[in-house]
Amino acid sequence: MTGKTVLVTGGTGGIGGATAAGLAGHGARVGLVGRDRQRADATAGRIRDAGGEADVFTADMSSLRQVRVLAEEVLTAYPSLDVLVNNVGGYWATRHATEEGFERTFAVNHLAPFLLTNLLLERLRGSAPARIVTVSSGAQAMGRIDFADLMGAEDYNGQRAYNQSKLANVMFSYELARRLEGTGVTATVLHPGVVRTNFGREDSMGWMRLMLPLVRPFMKSPEAGARTSIHLASAPEVEGATGLYYANATPKRSSQASYDATAAARLWDLSAELVGLP
């Protein structure tokens, strides 16, 4: 990865921080995106102390306005961009609205990476061969895209919203791969495993708060959870691999719903309308 430039969203801790550190260890220049500047600077400092190269970008990915500003900053900073890792994600047990009025789970987990990817797409095309890696979850297998109530305005359930957003990640990646065919830019999506992070602690359900201390010892470390992201971002053997879902660095079949190309195109068009893209 020496000479390559990588952007990792949600890159200040957990799976994203481990992904950034791993790719920097392989020689990449890594851009870290996080909400908290102090935390991002600390992560970047550890990467630099280990001999890596890291830059910091600050953005709250629930704000599409801030995603647009982030894209402008990245395009200014990086004349070329070899890898985009859409790692940011979240879970909220209760419904929250973003500053644009979108349901936060759908906004952070799907609309933010959808918008950022599209805003950076020409730079990625110009840097080809380039890779777009999106972190989904095994929860995609339980997901259903509710086109009648994408934002959970009528009937919100935290787990259902999360499952939907993770299925959206997979469908987005497959549709993106179809649209990028022949450009030299690939799109893959992955399940990192069940990982020991602070995921969901901001607003978790009661049973999660009770169960997490019991199951944490059996969860993957962030470093183990980052292995598939690092593999898809850097491994020579996956050069050219696109439109695939991975777990444990191995191609797997995703849910049957994820292969519905008609629904994926519909989701793409609706997402573009929501974020204000042509």
Rank of each mutant, 00 (worst) to 15 (best):
D269S: 15
R178I: 00
P129T: 14
H110M: 02
E100A: 11
A141E: 12
A263S: 14
V215E: 07
T242V: 06
H191K: 08
P129C: 13
N109H: 08
P278T: 14
S258Y: 05
E99Y: 02
S255K: 04
R104P: 11
T250C: 09
L81C: 03
A24E: 03
G25C: 01
A20W: 01
P79Y: 13
T183I: 10
A257G: 05
F218N: 03
Y174V: 03
T19L: 03
A28Q: 09
A257L: 08
F106E: 02
V133R: 10
D155M: 07
G143Y: 05
N87W: 07
P278C: 11
D155T: 12
L23W: 13
A187V: 10
W92D: 00
L23E: 10
L124N: 10
Y91K: 04
G52Y: 01
T12W: 00
S80L: 08
H110D: 02
T94K: 15
R179F: 02
D49H: 12
L270G: 02
P192C: 13
I132R: 07
A148N: 09
G34F: 11
P251Y: 11
T228W: 00
E239I: 01
R65E: 15
P236D: 14
T98M: 10
R201A: 14
Y246M: 08
L116F: 09
L212D: 09
V8I: 13
G101I: 09
L84E: 00
G11R: 02
Q164N: 08
G17S: 08
V108I: 15
H231A: 05
P251F: 12
V30P: 01
